[in-house]
Design a binder for these strands. Structure first.
Lengths: 342, 342
DNA sequence: TTGTAGGCGTTATCAG
DNA sequence: CTGATAACGCCTACAA
């Protein structure tokens, strides 16, 4: 049944290909009657336009892409939904593309831009350490949404929206201090990993110091790199090890809720209790944090607002209504039952 | 800087386009020297081939797609990873595409097949109620992986791999009966929804009857359709309502772990205890089920095996090593601390 | 080993 | 309003 093309449809209808094209694309200059006739033939013969050919020829595509690193992260689920809604509202279509941990998001973006004639990109998650030269290759608007960035940041290149990881991390650790904890452990990424984990770790350090607590490296624990990072499994293993080390501490700050839950379970399985024996705090404000038992004290990131802002900014830039901007949202300290006054 | 094409590269190198093409595609008939020279120019000028043009021309693509309905479902996360690995091992590439709840997966598949010249498809999740006529349009091998299907099933069309939802549902409800529960509630999809929920509900009914328990419709609760289904939120709300109804029951079977966790939290928030006051059972065997406190009794679906089987079968069919097949995996009853003998 | 030319299925630009 | 026809960027015979 050799795949049917626009030519076949044209022949079947006794019209030219351009007329068929007009019918498919809701072009105004076309007789309603011929249009309905064409659409009928299309339906009957199950004609489906070839997107590759379309993309090849088309110049403006009304399509943006979301490149997401860590697609299994539940933190992104709601974001995707919001981004999708907001995009649809603007009559654009939306392509979700996952990028693997070791892949270079810029390379993928470059490829996609060519292939799909994208108008804009939202990067979700991951960590940006690309050279300006590399970034400047990407000549369409893009915004970095909750992606980690190091050092210098040129506002000309792209927008950025996220919470201030340092500040929020500081906030929750400061809270732990204020309710009396002095021996506060942290479960973070490995310290030579220049990621979001490093920033949160720095917030932790600063909070301790400002509360006159000398950081103790024996309480600084890194996720295992032979287990997927930012998972409950990882949190569990690290916490188990910490408990078995016999180190003295009364609270632990896990840099994500998943890790916090893994850590909590390790404590419970050791026959101890949260928060009676150990207070546990997380980060992100996932649904599961509040559903867990005990509910995890955490920093809620305003995902909806963040996602909305990302889309708004992106389209403002696309439509040249505004320049790129840096948009930092406040997180909210959610006090659950996993932490207690000491 | 008008996007650079293969022609430009050819000109820059002083060779023909076919030579450049050969270089890019690792074609054998090419002088190593000219090849390295070409690759150098490509790197220097950041040339990126246009995939649309490639797909348009190409006939066989060594690419499969995974169409996934409910991408935020953590149940699929591990599957995706496994599928990806297995696909890579076979030197194929792999395209992940999410389909929205209301979208028709077959239409999307058809489109993708044309656009990308796919060799095979794995459908993940969702529910198939398409006519044979529609299905037969999809003329490449595909396998349904943990997707619900109704009634008749023609094995010629495609493969199917999943657990037996009826049997597994029966298994866990039977377990509840065997440990002494007689008033067992269920939280499922709405009963006129012909989905996987219906099948699990039927398993529940059968288990009750086989244990000489008369089903009580007052204990059959449906998820709210104004809240996203299969979520903790939904489980929470439904359970809260059930508790407040004053209905007498000692156990509840939630047809997914997320729902079970929401339900558990509702019980806890009502000042009751799991499992002392109410036993709670789930379905799926998500990580969080075992990490929850108390660990949720559930049916663990062997996700790795399921995903592996899906890929294996798909490639067997692609390579014509085998016909389509129906592959049913056993689930495993995982007994947590959320259920107790009565 | 390399270059030339035709075509993949559409859309866009023209004339009619 | 409609129909040829030239791109779009690449691959692949076919020729050299």
């Amino acid at each position: 049944m050799g795949t049917i093309t626009i030519k076949d449809v044209a022949k079947l209808c006794g019209v030219g290909v351009s007329t068929v094209s007009r019918a498919i694309n809701n072009h105004p200059d076309i007789n309603e009657e011929t249009k309905t006739k064409i659409m009928k033939v299309i339906k009957e013969n199950n004609y489906i336009p070839n997107n590759s050919a379309r993309n090849l020829k088309r110049s403006n595509s009304k399509m943006i892409a979301v490149l997401i690193k860590g697609i299994s992260n539940p933190f992104f689920s709601k974001m995707i939904k919001v981004i999708e809604e907001e995009t649809q509202e603007r009559k654009y279509s939306f392509l979700l593309h996952r990028v693997e941990e070791r892949e270079d998001e810029i390379d993928i973006a470059l490829e996609l831009v060519k292939e799909k004639k994208l108008r804009g990109i939202i990067f979700l998650g991951g960590y940006f350490t690309h050279s300006e030269e590399k970034l400047s290759q990407l000549d369409i608007p893009y915004v970095l949404c909750t992606v980690g960035i190091t050092g210098k940041w040129s506002k000309e290149l792209c927008s950025f929206v996220a919470v201030d990881d340092f500040k929020e991390s500081y906030k929750i650790v400061d809270y732990l201090c204020k309710i009396g904890h002095k021996r506060i452990a942290i479960i973070t990424t490995s310290l030579d990993d220049t990621s979001i984990g490093l920033i949160r770790y720095k917030g932790y350090l600063q909070a301790l110091r400002d509360n006159n607590i000398e950081p103790d490296m024996k309480l600084v624990r890194s996720m295992k790199d032979d287990i997927e990072t930012f998972t409950m499994d990882n949190g569990y293993v690290v916490m188990k090890e910490l408990l078995e080390s016999g180190e003295d501490f009364t609270a632990v700050f896990a840099i994500s809720d998943s890790i916090a839950i893994g850590a909590s379970k390790a404590i419970l399985n050791a026959g101890k209790s949260v928060p009676e024996d150990y207070s546990v705090a997380g980060f992100d404000g996932l649904d599961i944090a509040s559903y867990y038992n005990p509910a995890i004290t955490t920093i809620r990131q305003p995902v909806d607002e963040i996602a909305k802002a990302a889309v708004t900014i992106l389209f403002d830039v696309i439509k040249k209504k505004a320049d790129h901007q840096m948009c930092v949202f406040p997180g909210e300290l959610i006090i659950g039952q996993s932490t207690k006054l000491i």
